[in-house]
Structures are given as C-alpha cells and as structure tokens.
Amino acid sequence: MAEIIDITANKEQAIEAACKVLGEGLPIAIPTETVYGLAADATNPAAIARIYETKGRPQFNPLICHMADLAMAEQYADFDPVSRTLAEAFWPGPLTIVVPLKGGSAIHALATAGLDTVGIRVPKGFAGELIRAFGHPLAAPSANTSGKISATSADHVAADLGEKIRLILDSGASDVGVESTIVKVEDGKLRLLRPGGLPAVEIERVAGMKLVRPKKASAAIEAPGMMASHYAPGAHVRLDATDVSDSEALISFGPAPVAGSQSARIVLNLSETGDLSEAAANLFDYMKRADASGATTIAFSAIPDEGLGEAINDRLRRAAAPRE
C-alpha cells in the first residue's frame, strides 16, 4: 500500500521522498488545485509508460506536462503571442495551453502520444515547488483508473490506486475540483479543447478574442479529457433529472426540490445556494459517494451551462455517454 505523507505537516520530507521516487522512474500521486495527479518524469519514457500502465490509460491519449513556471515551459515548447499572454495572466492556475514542441525537446513522445504539440500547465502551490525541486517537468494525468471518476483527495487516490503506487502526497481536498481548461491557438483562432477550472469568459477577456468551441465531437484526441466516455462511475448517469426513483441516487444543484427525492438511495446537493464554484469542488467527491450507495443510476438535476457550469456539464455528459 502506498505511503501517504501530509505535506502541510511535513513539506520538506514530502519533497525529499517525492524526488527520490520520481528519480527512480516511478509515478507518485500529487495534489494540485484542480485534482490529484499521477505524476512522473516527462522526459523519462519508462516513467511515462508506468503512468499509462498504472491508470490503464490508452497511449493515444496525451498527457499534460506540468512545469514550475513559464521560463521552464519555454525550454521545451514555443509560445505564440496569444499563448504567452494567457500564460502570463493565468499561470500558475487551472489553464493548460497546447503549444508546439521545440525541436529536440526533452519531453518524450510517449507523453505527447506522438503529437508535435504538448499541453503545458503551471500548477499553483506545492506541485510547482515540487517540480522546481525535481528539476524536470512532470507528466501528470488525474490520479485515477482511466475513464473513472477523478480524485480530489488523497483518500480517493488510495482507494483506487493505493496498491499500485509507492507514494501519495496529501494536502486535503482540491480547491477547484475539476481539471484544467485546455486551449490551443491554431490558424489565428483560439480553440477550446476542454472546458475546466478556468471559465471561458476569463480567457476571452484576456485574449481579446472568442473561444472557438467544437461543433461536434472529433475523432482526433488532441488533449486529455476529449474521449467521449470519461469520468464514469460504476452506476449509470442520468442528466437533467426532474424526478428520482428509489433505486437511484440524486445529486442536485440549487434550492429547487426534485420529485421523489425522499425515497432516493442518497441525496447530495452540489451547492444549495447555486454556487458553481462550490459545485465544481464537490462534483467528483459526490459522484464517488453516490456510486458507493449501491444505486443503479445517479440522477443529476440540471446545472446552468455557464461559467464553471460549462466544465461541470462537460464532465457529466462524458460520464453519461455510452460505454464500450
């Protein structure tokens, strides 16, 4: 079983232990402000392969590479003016920017799924300190079995991957609760590849241009979180529910009542006041709790598709998608 170190009490010990395990080419679980990540050296192909193996993740699905700061990121990739403006405005923070790799970049092709671009993020807080101490970028998808609910606490990681990894670093519950927003500048346009913890309106304000959203799902996987079925619990997921049965779990939003809720297996409210930030922070934890209730289906009431609601609804649509 993985060792768990509380970084709030033992930061120096956590960094020392993490650098040791990472230096051996093994993945570890680290906290970020979005979700917990399964991190390994992005320049070491054996270490990257162990991420895919541990998660059961298909190798055509690229990994986000986390950097200590923009200066480190520019050692590995080229930034156009818009991408640099966004990086300067929002890093460290919940924004991933897909940019071209530099020629001869040390980031291994296994991390980028063979693409000539790489998704880069600079995380807030401890994760950035760890990357700076380790001296290499960290490839770090969410620390969960591929396609399942993302982890927002060390306990979530331990329950899912604790038998497969050596070390979990614990900093409590993730502040944001959903993965980063992913954007890419291409042909003079700014594309939204995945909505996430940074609302689109904030990106558009700084970039001075509208985000282009895909009109339909693309078969090409350019960034994490683009697979049709993802973030899925064991139970089925039903969206925009206005009633619920006694075999279902209910996850509601806001003060509006849902018919039949008194007989549901479990009733959870993402935010009784309708706060989308609170809802995002609770999303994955509540999905796990509802899934553990024994319900055959998790019913979600409607959530506004604005601000962080866009990211929440993206996760829910993928969780509800047909599974292969």
Rank of each mutant, 00 (worst) to 15 (best):
A9M: 12
I15C: 06
C19V: 15
L22E: 10
L22K: 07
L22P: 10
P27H: 07
P27G: 09
E33K: 06
L38N: 01
A42C: 08
G56A: 05
R57L: 11
N61W: 07
C65H: 09
H66Y: 03
H66A: 03
M67H: 04
D69F: 02
A71I: 04
Y76C: 12
A77Q: 11
D78Q: 08
D80R: 10
D80K: 14
A89T: 02
G93S: 02
L101G: 01
K102Q: 05
G104V: 10
A109V: 06
T117R: 01
R132T: 13
G135P: 09
P137Y: 04
P137K: 09
K148L: 00
T152F: 09
A154M: 11
A159Q: 06
I165S: 13
R166C: 08
S174I: 02
D175Q: 12
V183N: 07
D187H: 14
L190K: 08
R191V: 07
R194M: 07
A200L: 10
I203F: 00
E204V: 00
R205I: 08
K210T: 09
R213V: 13
R213D: 10
P214T: 09
A219Y: 05
Y231H: 04
L239W: 07
D240K: 13
V244S: 12
D246S: 13
A249I: 12
G254Q: 13
G254T: 03
P255M: 14
V258W: 12
V258A: 06
G260E: 02
S261K: 15
Q262L: 11
A264N: 00
I266L: 05
S271N: 04
E272M: 08
E278L: 01
E278M: 04
A281I: 09
L283I: 04
F284H: 15
Y286W: 12
R289D: 11
A292L: 15
G307P: 00
E310L: 07
I312T: 04
D314T: 12
R315E: 02
L316Y: 03
L316I: 08
R318Y: 06
